[in-house]
Write a protein that binds this DNA or RNA. Structure first.
Lengths: 132, 132
DNA sequence: GATAAGGGTTCCAGTTGCTGGAAGGTCAAG
DNA sequence: CTTGACCTTCCAGCAACTGGAACCCTTATC
């Protein structure tokens, strides 16, 4: 399989697949003409990476997960730990965004949004406290 | 004021302040020795930027907001629009993270996390469907 | 006057995860 | 034989910094 076939089947752009090879996530073979040649195994690995990335795992996490995936004597606890740490990161990000959201929503609500220059949003940014 | 004073008062690292000058967000003066010299106005601007960044606004948004802040004939509607667009972005990110969180949590719950190799998390990543 | 500590300066490189573009080789069809 | 769609590599850039090297300036102390 050439790269565009794999791209179509995995939904990953060819550029991304080349990048994954460059950083050593996958090791496709090469044909006599220099083209990358992908096996079914490579296809599975790339689909695996694509799904892990869709769940927000970092590239380094993907590397770890791929390695565990290929290790038939792995302990599921190792996989679970990677997932749990990632869940914590997600929760932290959500909490941070919720905090921003709350403050921002409050400011937006208190801003008239008309042609006058008075603006509680700018006041808050300038003073470090809401004008309400 | 020298850069470390401003850093202490705003909580921004000196490196970040230099970076903000480099990209034209602020224009501190220079002393005869080449040191940056910050006025109270610069201090306010940097504190303003720091708070906007804490609310998740991009550097470009900060540029716009700073410009509106300095424009006494602004319309608050312009500020509100920037804030509303940013709120939408935050909401989109939260939704995406919640989606990831839900899937990940489900997988984690179904994984025994012991010494055996069977792992629904890897199964899902490999197959594109949960094993439950 | 020498020196050492603690400022400041610039410039270059690296981070994460790609993405765009240029320049060029390959291949299959008409 | 040429056209067009592939493929290749390499270089640059995105956001928003951060680290480090190499060097200058200031102030205090001996």
């Amino acid at each position: 399989m050439n790269i565009s076939d794999v791209a179509r089947k995995t939904g990953l752009p060819p550029k991304t697949i080349r990048y994954y090879e460059e950083i050593g996530l996958i090791q496709p073979d090469r044909g006599a003409n220099g083209y990358r040649l992908f096996s079914e195994t490579h296809l599975h690995q790339l689909a695996f990476i694509g799904r892990a990335r869709a769940l927000g795992f970092s590239i380094e996490d993907c590397r770890t997960l791929l390695s565990l995936y290929g290790d038939k004597s792995r302990a599921s606890a190792d996989v679970k730990q990677v997932a749990l740490e990632h869940l914590d990161e997600i929760d932290a990000k959500i909490a941070q965004l919720q905090q921003m959201r709350t403050t921002l929503q409050h400011l937006i609500t208190s801003c008239a949004g008309d042609t006058r220059p008075d603006c509680p949003i700018l006041n808050d940014l300038a003073q470090g406290q809401a004008s309400s």
